[in-house]
Design a protein around this nucleic acid. Sequence first.
DNA 1: GTGGTCTAGACCACT
DNA 2: GTGGTCTAGACCACC
Lengths: 127, 127, 127, 127
Amino acid sequence: MLELDVKSRVPIYEQLVEKIKELIIMEVLKEHEQLPSVRSLASELTINPNTIQKAYRELENQGYIYSIPGKGNFVAPINKNKKLEKVNKLKEELKRLILEAIYLGITKEELMELYDSVNKEIKEGRR
Amino acid sequence: MLELDVKSRVPIYEQLVEKIKELIIMEVLKEHEQLPSVRSLASELTINPNTIQKAYRELENQGYIYSIPGKGNFVAPINKNKKLEKVNKLKEELKRLILEAIYLGITKEELMELYDSVNKEIKEGRR
Amino acid sequence: MLELDVKSRVPIYEQLVEKIKELIIMEVLKEHEQLPSVRSLASELTINPNTIQKAYRELENQGYIYSIPGKGNFVAPINKNKKLEKVNKLKEELKRLILEAIYLGITKEELMELYDSVNKEIKEGRR
Amino acid sequence: MLELDVKSRVPIYEQLVEKIKELIIMEVLKEHEQLPSVRSLASELTINPNTIQKAYRELENQGYIYSIPGKGNFVAPINKNKKLEKVNKLKEELKRLILEAIYLGITKEELMELYDSVNKEIKEGRR
DNA sequence: GTGGTCTAGACCACT
DNA sequence: GTGGTCTAGACCACC
C-alpha cells in the first residue's frame, strides 16, 4: 500500500506524509480511524521509527491527524477544507505543466486523449 | 527578470535552472544568444559566482546551453530528439497528475478550462 | 588504489570519475555497494570534500552511482540500454582511432596483437 | 582542410597543433614547405592571430616546424622519430580503449570488423 | 574579461 | 555521520 522510494531525492518522511494525506483525502482512511502504530509501521516498512514519528508529527501539524498520547494516532475529521486546498494545489501544478506542454507544442486534443487514457485505465482496474 | 527566493527549500541554483530553462523554451533567449557572464549575473543577483556556475553547468548537462571557456555561455540549438524525449517525459508527468486529479473528482471539463486559461495567459503575454 | 596526479592538466574530479568508472565497469565495485563517504575519501586523498562531491555528482549524472542523502553513495545497477549506448560510443571512438592508425601504417595484425596483449594483462590480473 | 570546433572543450590552439601535426606526419605538408602566414591563416579561419601564433610556437617547441624571422614558418625535416613517437602514443590510446571494450564484452572479431569497415571506407574514398 | 577548478569553512536536513 | 548547498577567495588557461 505504502510504496516508498528510498532512492528518491525527496525525504522518506515527506513521501510518507504525502501518501497518507492522499489516503485520507481519498477517504480510504476514514474519520477517527486509527493509524498503524509507529513501531508496527516502522517494522513493516523496515524504516527507522524516528522517521515515522516525524511524518506523524508533520501530519498532525497540518491537521490531517490527531494524536492521543498512550492510545495512538487517528484521522482528523475536518476533511472538506483540506480537500479543497489539495485540489487547488494540484490545479496549480497542472497549470505549470500545461504551460510547458503548450510551449512544447502539445495540443488540447492530446491533453484530452491523456485524460481519457488515464480514465480508461482506472475503469479497467489497472490502476 | 530572474526572481529568486533565497529562503525557499529548493536550492538557489535549481531555481535558476528552472527560470532560465523557461526563458529558453519560451524563446525569450534565442539560439546561440549569449547568457550573462557568471560574474555579472552573480553580482546582479548578489549571489556567489560558484552558485551561478553550478546552475550553468546543470543547464549544459541537460543540453539547454553550451559553454565556450574564455568566451561565455550560449543557448544551445533545439535538438529534435531532445525535444521528443522531453515531450514524452512531460506526458508521463501529466498522466500522473491527471490520475490524482481524477481521484480528487476533477472533471475533464475542468482540465479543459485549465488549458484554456493558461493558453489565454500566454496569448495576452502575461507569461 | 586511487592514484591521482594533482599536477596533471586534467582536473582532479575528472580523474576521480574515470578511475571510479573503471572500478565499476570491472566490477571491483559491485551493484548497490557503498562507496567511501565524501569526507572519508577526501581526508584519505588529502583533497577537498567539495572536489569529491563534484566527482560523485558527475558519476550520478552519468548513471554510474546513485546517492541517498544522509546515507551515502552507492553503485547503480547496470542498465542494459546504458550499456548498449556506451558500447556504441566506444565503437565510434575506436573507429576514429583506427582511422588514424591506418594512416600511420598500423596493420590489422598489430591491432590484433594489441588486443591480445591487453587481454593477457587482464587474465594475469595485472589490470 | 583545417576544421576546428569552437564549441569543443579542447582549446583552439591545441586543436590547430594536433591537426597540423597530423598533416606533417602524413606528409601532406612536406619537409621545408612553408606554412601559411599567421595573418592569412587567422583571417581564413576567422580566428584571433594570437591563437595561431601560439599554435605555431607550440609546434616549434615540439620540433615539428622551424621559424625564420621575417620569412615565415616551415616544416622541420626530422619526421622519423616524431612519427614513431606518434605511433606509440596512438597505440597507448588504443590499448586504453580496448581495455574498456573488453570489459564491455566486445570481442576480437568485432574489433576486426571495425578495422575492416574503416579500411573499406578509406579505399572507397569516403574518408 | 571569460569560464573552470580548487580550497576552506560553514550550515542544513535526513537517518 | 551522511550528502547537499552556499560563500569567499584564490589561481589558471584561453581569447
